[in-house]
């Protein structure tokens, strides 16, 4: 190793790029959440709408994501020792958790939509409760954007599993795990905002 005179070089370039990406993503989500909070403070009636979300399903989803994050961390730990079988096992568990999350999410969506709480909630708008309809717009916007990230994460994990299977790019397990933890992190804040704060 020739010169690592500058301490920053300790961070390899893939991880550095991932951290920068995460910073960017956190700002996108964070500003959406800031907007939600501002309007939440403006409309106290959103509490009543939040009560209509399915708390137990949300809690279950949080649990699933936390556990999946745990598996991702374990996969990363195993990848450093290049334990192929272990990495693949943990990554598939992560994918399984992600799929469960999406399944529960889509069940929640169908249930809400069947009750008339859609993206635009025309029923609420016609009843003169435009602000309440806006809550549901935010609900779908925030959770939908998050679900999109879950989906992207799952696809990325799929690619990484393919690489690992061919004994390549073990260090990329860490990158995808970082991304997955970020998805988890965002959900940790979305859950209380959308489900608990009644």
């Amino acid at each position: 190793m020739q010169s690592t005179t500058v301490s920053l070089r300790r961070v390899p370039q893939g991880r550095l790029a991932l951290w920068l990406l995460i910073a960017g993503e956190l700002i996108i989500f964070g500003s959406a959440i800031v907007v939600y909070l501002l309007l939440r403070l403006r409309y106290p009636e959103w509490g009543a709408e939040a009560a209509k979300t399915h708390l137990s399903l949300g809690a279950f989803n949080t649990l699933v994501l936390l556990v999946s994050s745990y598996f991702a961390a374990k996969a990363h730990e195993a990848s450093l020792k290049k334990l192929k079988g272990k990495v693949l096992r943990y990554l598939s568990l992560t994918v399984l958790c992600g799929l469960i999350f999406l399944g529960v999410k889509s069940y929640e969506y169908t249930e809400k939509i069947s009750h008339g709480y859609t993206f635009t909630s025309p029923k609420l708008v016609e009843a003169g409760q435009g602000a309440a309809a806006l809550f549901w717009s935010f609900y779908y916007f925030l959770t939908g954007l998050h679900a999109l990230h879950v989906l992207v994460g799952l696809i990325a994990i799929g690619f990484i599993m393919y690489y690992v299977k061919n004994n390549k790019h073990f260090h990329r397990v860490e990158l995808v795990a970082l991304y997955w933890h970020m998805v988890d992190l965002i959900w940790i804040f979305l859950f209380p905002l959308l489900y608990i704060m009644q």
């Binding site: 961070v11 956190l26 964070g30 500003s31 800031v34």
Partner: peptide, 24 residues
Amino acid sequence: NFMHWKYEPLFIWIITFFAVLFIL
């Protein structure tokens, strides 16, 4: 713990935590 933040150099802390928090 999961993201190993405690092992990262200060620079990473600044861009992912202080900057994001400041902006929000």
